[in-house]
Write a protein that binds this DNA or RNA. Sequence first.
DNA 1: AATGAATGAGCCTTCATTCAT
DNA 2: CATGAATGAAGGCTCATTCAT
Lengths: 216, 216, 216, 216
Amino acid sequence: MAATSVTSHTPPALAPRRRPKERPAELLKAALGVFASKGYAATRLDDIALKAGVSKGTIYLYFANKEALFMAAIEAGITPLVEAVEALSLDEERPSPERLRAFMLSWWSRIGDTPLSALPRLLVAEGNNFPKAAQWFHDEIVTRVQRALARLIETGIARGELRAVEPMVAARILFAPMFAYLVWRETFGQTLCHLPPPEQFFGLAADLLLAGLVRP
Amino acid sequence: MAATSVTSHTPPALAPRRRPKERPAELLKAALGVFASKGYAATRLDDIALKAGVSKGTIYLYFANKEALFMAAIEAGITPLVEAVEALSLDEERPSPERLRAFMLSWWSRIGDTPLSALPRLLVAEGNNFPKAAQWFHDEIVTRVQRALARLIETGIARGELRAVEPMVAARILFAPMFAYLVWRETFGQTLCHLPPPEQFFGLAADLLLAGLVRP
Amino acid sequence: MAATSVTSHTPPALAPRRRPKERPAELLKAALGVFASKGYAATRLDDIALKAGVSKGTIYLYFANKEALFMAAIEAGITPLVEAVEALSLDEERPSPERLRAFMLSWWSRIGDTPLSALPRLLVAEGNNFPKAAQWFHDEIVTRVQRALARLIETGIARGELRAVEPMVAARILFAPMFAYLVWRETFGQTLCHLPPPEQFFGLAADLLLAGLVRP
Amino acid sequence: MAATSVTSHTPPALAPRRRPKERPAELLKAALGVFASKGYAATRLDDIALKAGVSKGTIYLYFANKEALFMAAIEAGITPLVEAVEALSLDEERPSPERLRAFMLSWWSRIGDTPLSALPRLLVAEGNNFPKAAQWFHDEIVTRVQRALARLIETGIARGELRAVEPMVAARILFAPMFAYLVWRETFGQTLCHLPPPEQFFGLAADLLLAGLVRP
DNA sequence: AATGAATGAGCCTTCATTCAT
DNA sequence: CATGAATGAAGGCTCATTCAT
C-alpha cells in the first residue's frame, strides 16, 4: 500500500503499570540518584528510566528534556534539604556552646548521614555547567545554614557567652568542617580515606572551635 | 636562476617552529583546564585541541584515548600540587601556633590562589566515575597535607605547646576550612557567594582553632 | 440536606452528548485537514486527535493505523470530489464554446474555491510514497474530469462546432489551467504569488483556448 | 580505571575515501534526489548518506542539520534551474507565434525532460512546511518563466502580431500546460496516467493557445 | 466507547577515534 | 609529526501504537 519505510511501527510488548500521580516523584528520585552518582553529562536517561522502573519515553511525559529533569531533580532535592536545615537544633534555652555543639551533631544526623548528602557534591560538580542551579543551591542551603550559625553566634555574643567576632565569617568557619566532612565522605568514601567517625570528628571540631569562641 | 648567494642569504626566516618536545605538556595543560571547567563527560577533545592550538588528531599521537589523557592531565596537575604542598611553610624553629597560622596562609597563597586550585574540585566532581584517580589524589594530596598538619601538631604537643589531641583528627579539622574555602570559591565564585577575603577567613579560622589547640 | 424536590428539579442539564455514529466522519475530516496541510510523515496523530476533539487512542477504535487513516481520509475526500466533478456544468443544450467556458467556471466555484481543493495538492505531494492512492486519485478524478472534457469536445466536433482535434489530448490541455491555478493557490497562496483573480484567469483561458478549438 | 559506561567507544572499520572538495556537491545532489522522492519528513539522513556513498556523520561536516541540508539542496537545485530558464529559447528575430511554440518545446527539453523537473513538485509538496523556500522558488523560477513569457507577449503585441491581452495573465495561462504536464508526469508517471507524448501535448497546446493570441 | 499513560523502535545529532595524506 | 576528513556507535527525543481503566 504505502511506500516502503514510510510506515513500519511495531507495537509495545509488556504490560504497563499505571501510577500517574506518583510517577513524577519517582522519576525525580531516580534522577537525583543517578545524576548525583555520575554527574549530568555522563547520566543516560536510560539509566534513570531503568532505576525508576519505567521506559525512557515515560520521562518525556513529565519533563521537557534532560536539563528540565535535572533542574527539577535539584529542586526536588533542595526542598527537603531546606526543611532539614530549618529543623536543625536551635534550642534557645541552652547556653551557646551547647547549642553550637548540638547544631553540628544534628547537621550530621539529619543531613550528612542521609541521602540528602548527595546534593551538595552534585552541585559542586555541576556548578560550572549550571550556574543558575549553583547560585540557587547556595542561596537556599549554604546561606541558610550560615545564617542560622551566625544568629546563634550573635545571640551568644549578646548574652556575653561568646567573644565578639564577625558572626558571618565565624559562621563560615564553623560550617567548613561540616561541609568538608560531607564532601570527603561522598567523594572518597568513609573508609577509603580514613575519615574519623563523625562523633569524634564533630566532637573535636566543636571543642577546638568553641575554645576560640567562648569568652574566657 | 638567481645567484645562489642571493637566495641563500635569506635567513632561516621567522620559523619559531613548534617544539614537539613540549607538545604533551601543552596538551596536558589545556586538557586540565577544560576538564576542570566542564568535567570529564562534557569535555570534547575538540575543545582541548582548540585550546592547545592543535588538531584533534594530534592528541592521539600522545595519548591513547580520552581517558588516558584525563588521567595524564590529573597526574600533570597532581605533581606540581604535591610540590606545592611539600613547600608549605613548616619552619620548625617558630612556636607551634605561629607555624599553624603560617601553614594556613601559605596554603592559600601557594595553592588556593593559583591555578592549582582547579584540581581538587575536579576530583570531587569525578570521584565517582574515576575512583582510581580519586584515591590517588587523596593519597597524594589530602593525606600529605593532613600528615604535615598532624606532624606539626604532634611536635607542638611534644614541646608542650599544644594540648594533647588526636593529631590525625585535629589535622582533618584544621584542613577543613582550607578545603572548604577553596571549593566554595571554585564552585560559586568569590563574590557571588559573599566569601570573606582569605586573610580574614584564615585569620579568624586560625584564631578560633588555635584557641582550642593551645595549652592554656 | 436540601429538600429532595429542589435538587431533583435540576434538569438533565446541558448534555448534548457526543454522537458516536459521527465519530469516524469527524476523524476523517480532521485527518484530511492535517494531512493536507503538513503531509503524511509530518502529521502527528496527536494533531488529528486534537483537531477532532478526541483522544489519540480513540483513533485506533476506528482505524487500524496511521496509514489506514490516511487512505480512509483520502477516500473520504475523493468521494465528494467525484460528486462535485460529476456535477460540473455539462448542459448539452448550449453550444460547445459556452459549455466549455461554463465547465471551467463551475470547476472553480464547485471545487477550486472549496475545501475540496486541498486534495489534489496532497496527492501530488504523497504520490511517490503512496502510489496506490495516487493511481486511485488519478483514475477517479483526473481521468473523470478529462473524460468529461473530452466528451464535450467530441460532441462539439460531431456537431461541427469545434475543429477536429484529438479529444483526450485537448482535454488534458483544457484541464491544465484548472489544475495549475488550483495547485499554485494551494502552494503559494493567492496573493503571495500574485495570482490573477479566478474570473480573469479562467475567462482569458477560455478565450484563448476556445479560439483554437472553435471552427472558424 | 574509569567507571563503567563512562567511556566505551569502538573504532571505525572501513577505509574512508577522501574527496573533500566534491563532497558538498555530491551530498546536495543525493539529498535533492531523496528529498524530491520521499519528501522532507520521510527522508532519513541515512538514505542520503547511503546514496552519496558516505556515512551519516559526514553530512554534519558540511551542513548544520537536516533542515539546512534541505535548504541547501533546494538552492543547489534552483541555481541550475534558473540558468535553464534563462537559456530558454527567446529568439527575437522570429515571429511571435513561432517564438512561443519554441519556448514551450525548449522548456520541455531543457527542464521537463531533465532531473531539474524534480524540484517543482518537491516545492509544491513542502510549500506549507517551508514557506520561505516556496516563496523563494516562486520568485526565482515561476516568476522568471512568467516574465519571459509576458515579455514575449508584449513584444508580439507591440509588433502587431498578437492581440492586446493582459500579458501577465496570458503568461500564466501559457505556463499552465507546461507546469501541469511536468507535475503530472512527476506525480503519476508518464505511462501510468496515459499522458500524451510531450511533442503532441505541447504542439496542440501551442496551436490552441496561439489561435487565441494571434491577431486574426 | 473513550481515555491517556506507557512503551520502544527509530531518527537526528554528537563526538571519540581512525587513517590517508 | 601533524592534519582534518571520515566513521559509526551512542544518546536525546519523538511519536505510532497498545492497553488497563
